[in-house]
Design a protein around this nucleic acid. Structure first.
Lengths: 232, 232
DNA sequence: CGTTAAATTGACGAATCTCAATGCACGTGG
DNA sequence: CCACGTGCATTGAGATTCGTCAATTTAACG
């Protein structure tokens, strides 16, 4: 299986700039694996032996402490996860599990570090990627510390709405219990938050979300690219 | 002033591995500036024109939204800040202000990016540094989402206690209002949290903290290297 | 000293969680 | 095709955590 070149992986920003030779070297020890839904991939605290690239499906990165659990982020294809642990040869800070049937390319961490030293294009791409990840988590922290749960939900809905191109209605791409965990609240609290947002122009019907009064919701949510946007 | 070589900066992990030539090139456009206490250095949303290196003093990285403010992290010497924005040529996500009289070396961002492409040792150091920053913020997120304010304070005290070598007593290195903001709570709430921790073997007298019953406090705080430690 | 800012304290209210019960959807096996 | 688990979502009641406001005390510093 290791003679495959994983075209979806090659086209990722992270691997696009490197030489064919180094890419082949990197993939020599890599293998593609398919997992059923709800399978544990990684336990926090384990050594980061592989860089993971999610080719299809969805993965939940979560963490436990003192009998509590929270979802830190959701990974969608095509992207890598736990790059930082691989670079530092450290233990994973988060556990990972598939949410759906998922195909994942696993690249030995030592190969990633070795090629990093050989290929300047790859090194540059790793830095740019890590910087983006860092900024994304900073935004998460600001979101948690500066906003109430209701405000986080309002901004999440606006963000999805915008990402989909502001359609009349759209479906949540997460189970509500998952969404609650990502937003840092309980499912019960999320349920009540949805109700509370009716007063700000949000209509909910199962998975279907309709933003009936975008101006009103924005006035409440006060979205900002310094917390909510994905890019820059 | 640009003929100085800033020896404190040179010895940083970030710059230690690069060639003398490239280091000189990087510092050609850099300059050292001294700031009084409580001076605004950076406003969030501004373009990241400079990488900052704190040589002495202390800097607060904070953020505002909707008339609220929170301290995201405190920078102590000698270390850089806002490396990620520099790398991505993006806007700062956090504001910065001096807490004390501080000396700061400012390196033009474009020079950082240019040398990054020239010097593999520097590139490697940047990646390792960014990965550490990323992991640190992930820990912050876990701390916020998995723990109550009381638990965060308990673990903060244990962490400082350990960092100082478990002395009989030690001084807080932050103003209490600053600490409250870092821990994601109000000063009033922090005050009550200190009182509540008396029941778990913590004695507070102004700045002086005494952990009279480490075992009891640990039993309550349940510290873990996956959230609390600084390294790995 | 006198001025200023921080820290503390009390009273109150808002935000959030917990526990328990119920409703609802989906899939499986009879 | 339908009964019945199973798990998620919702709702209610109550407790806890946490924030706000105001007053007071304490500490720092010129």
């Amino acid at each position: 299986m290791s003679d495959s070149t994983f075209p979806e992986v090659r086209s990722l920003d992270l691997f696009a700039d490197m030489s064919d030779e180094n890419y082949a070297k990197l993939m020599r020890g890599a293998y593609l694996q398919t997992f059923p839904p709800h399978v544990d991939l990684i336990g926090e605290g384990e050594g980061a032996d592989f860089l993971h690239v999610l080719v299809s499906g969805a993965v939940d990165l979560f963490s436990r402490w003192n009998n509590r659990e929270t979802s830190v982020m959701i990974v969608k294809p095509v992207s890598t996860f736990i790059l930082a642990a691989t670079i530092r040869d450290a233990r994973y800070l988060m556990s990972a599990r598939t949410m759906e049937k998922s195909r994942i390319v696993m690249i030995p961490s030592q190969d990633v570090r070795a090629i990093f030293d050989l290929d300047a294009g790859f090194a540059r791409a790793v830095v740019v990627e890590l910087a983006a990840c860092y900024r994304s988590v900073i935004k998460t922290t600001k979101n948690l510390k500066l906003r109430t749960a209701l405000e986080r939900l309002a901004n999440y809905l606006l963000s999805r709405h915008r990402a989909y191109g502001a359609p009349a209605s759209f479906d949540l791409d997460l189970e509500k219990r998952q969404l609650a965990s990502v937003l840092g609240m309980t499912p019960e609290n999320l349920s009540r938050a949805f109700k509370a947002l009716q007063a700000y122009g949000v209509a909910v019907n199962g998975e279907k979300i309709e933003i009936t009064n975008p101006a009103l919701l924005q006035k409440f949510a006060k979205p900002t690219s310094l917390i909510d946007d994905d890019q820059t």
